[in-house]
């Protein structure tokens, strides 16, 4: 192998490297810009041209009087985290059991259920958002955090089911029978054998749901009501009046948190394998 690659024309290798670097630059330039402009000592309402380096915005975020000196951003962040956590938790709990039922049992309406679960993923978000709003209004369901929670659980469930189903597909049924043979009842079997074995899938589903919910703008924009403001909604509002660099700082923090969670998940899975 090594002798072969060693004798390859150098231009091929160089071309490959250039192509790879270009692809990564293309992928990461926006992310890098977000991070870099969090340190920009900007003038005016906008933060589009580089002026000079400053720690001010980071200091504002952590030590500012109203959390970054920008009204409402802290509440928006908390609202989004709470929504992401609760909706993903709810969707993971429901979706895991739905996945179990779909993989385990042959019942009437099983294939219909499979299709129905796929629909929310295929429906354009604007359509889903507007029809959900219509539904909430028709039902006189309180708009705000409750409607956001219901909507987010709804679109998260499909992704959870798909993720957990993939994990269950290779699951050896005999393991559960062995547990029952060894005096574990249905609940203990689930708790001690099934759940630990599908846990990586369940956890991945939870993270995915969390990210999808935290990130969602279109559906949230429809159903949030007049007072509830999530982080993406707040940025949208702020961007119309000019974007403060504190947004970049928060974006950087969210990005770093997500990346470290993903790394932790990968390491954890590797250790289990």
């Amino acid at each position: 192998m090594t002798t072969l690659t060693g004798r390859r024309p150098r231009w091929g290798r160089i071309g490959l490297i250039v192509y790879m670097v270009a692809a990564f630059v293309y992928l990461f330039t926006p992310v890098v810009l977000v991070i870099v402009f969090g340190f920009n000592d900007n003038r005016g309402r906008f933060n589009f041209t580089w002026v000079g380096f400053t720690w001010d915005h980071w200091r504002n975020v952590f030590f500012g009087e109203t959390f970054g000196g920008v009204p409402g951003v802290f509440d928006a962040l908390v609202s989004s985290l709470r929504l992401a956590f609760l909706s993903s938790l709810g969707a993971t709990a429901l979706g895991t059991f739905i996945a179990l039922a779909l993989v385990r049992y042959r019942f009437k309406g099983r294939s219909a259920a499979n299709v129905a679960l796929f629909l929310p993923m295929a429906t354009p978000e604007v359509v889903m958002g507007s029809s959900l709003l219509a539904l909430f209004i028709a039902l006189r369901f309180p708009l705000g955090f409750p409607s956001l929670l219901v909507a987010h659980i709804l679109f998260n469930i499909s992704y959870v089911v798909v993720t957990v189903k993939a994990r269950l597909q290779g699951f050896d049924r005999h393991l559960e029978e062995a547990a029952m043979d060894l005096y574990a009842n249905e609940w203990e079997t689930f708790r001690r054998v099934t759940l630990p074995m599908i846990m990586p899938g369940v956890f991945a589903a939870f993270l995915l749901g969390f990210a999808l919910s935290f990130d969602d703008f279109i559906i949230s924009n429809f159903v949030a009501g007049p007072t509830e403001v999530t982080f993406p909604l707040w940025i949208w509002g702020a961007a119309q009046r000019g974007i403060p660099p504190e947004v970049n700082v928060l974006g950087t923090l969210v990005f770093l948190t997500t990346v470290s969670l993903m790394l932790a998940n990968i390491l954890w899975q590797r250790r289990r394998a």
């Binding site: 050896d172 393991l175 029978e177 062995a178 029952m180 043979d181 060894l182 009842n185």
Partner: peptide
């Protein structure tokens, strides 16, 4: 009766050891 209520134990064809 459920398996966990029977005084028998099984060695499965595939062993079915708990991998975790």
């Amino acid at each position: 009766l459920k398996p966990y209520r029977r005084p028998v134990n099984t060695v499965f064809q595939s062993y079915a050891l708990f991998p975790h």
